[in-house]
């Protein structure tokens, strides 16, 4: 059975201060694709992967969804169950969630609609390669 939905962390709230790997501080709403790529390049442990949304299904509770991703070059299939408002960062697009209206309502974070085919920023350990 899938894991419980991930609870919503505080750092997606508009105005949250995020520290990049080089020490630079940015607000969560100002982050760009390059910020994630450059931070991962500096990191000795973490590697950015491209994770393509393959399916979006209803979750076990009404406000949850199960998202199936195809992760990295090996296209490993990984499912996560999250609340509909949980934002993912889509390459070249920015924050996106299954229910952007709700994300904006709860976090004041402007969001696009997450769709099948979107390529999200995700992390893996370098040693897993």
């Amino acid at each position: 059975s899938p894991p419980s939905p991930v609870a919503l962390p505080p750092f997606f709230m508009r105005g949250s201060i995020i520290q990049l790997a080089d020490g630079e501080l940015k607000r969560v709403e100002d982050l760009k694709t390059e910020d994630f790529i450059q931070s991962a390049e500096i990191s000795s442990e973490l590697k950015i992967d491209s994770s393509t949304v393959e399916r979006i299904d209803s979750g076990q509770s009404p406000n949850a969804v199960v998202i199936q991703f195809s992760v990295g070059e090996l296209k490993a299939q990984v499912c996560v169950e999250v609340l509909v408002e949980y934002p993912f960062f889509v390459f070249g697009q920015g924050w996106s969630s299954c229910c952007p209206d709700r994300t904006t309502q709860l976090f004041e974070l402007s969001c696009a609609k997450l769709c099948v085919g979107d390529v999200c920023v995700s992390l893996t350990l370098r040693s897993l390669r």
Binding site: S16, A21, L25, S43, G72
Partner: peptide
């Protein structure tokens, strides 16, 4: 004001051994 590390915003999607 709390400061959060960049990697906390990104899901960790690791292939599992059972795959």
């Amino acid at each position: 004001v709390p400061v959060f590390p960049w990697h906390s915003l990104v899901p960790f999607l690791a292939p599992t051994q059972s795959d």
